[in-house]
Amino acid sequence: PGLLEPTSTLVRVAKSASTLGIAIEGGANTRQPLPRIVTIQRGGSAHNCGQLKVGQVILEVNGNSLKGREHKDAARLIAEAFKTKERDYVDFLVTDFN
């Protein structure tokens, strides 16, 4: 646990805009077991960050694994990470390998 997979990248997204600006699909018990980024909206924090890409799969959010989380649960975790005032960034561990 906590060990980075060889193909994974840690991306820190600063909360530079009022929205995160990504759309995700997938989650446990679907064809896409881990959430995949399907859209990055221009002007959102993720777009401003410049390091997240459509097609990447999200493995962890602020160190919390998304493995085994159903879609709604994964989406809620990401939304809460963006909403919390505790940090002015969200850390994503992503991989291009699906």
């Binding site: 990504i22 995700i24 699909e25 064809r31 879609h71 989406a75």
Partner: peptide, 15 residues
């Protein structure tokens, strides 16, 4: 492999 194909597609959420 065939089992995977029977899994439903996921909804999409904008965050």
């Amino acid at each position: 492999r065939e089992k995977r194909l029977t899994l439903p597609p996921s909804e999409i959420t904008l965050l």
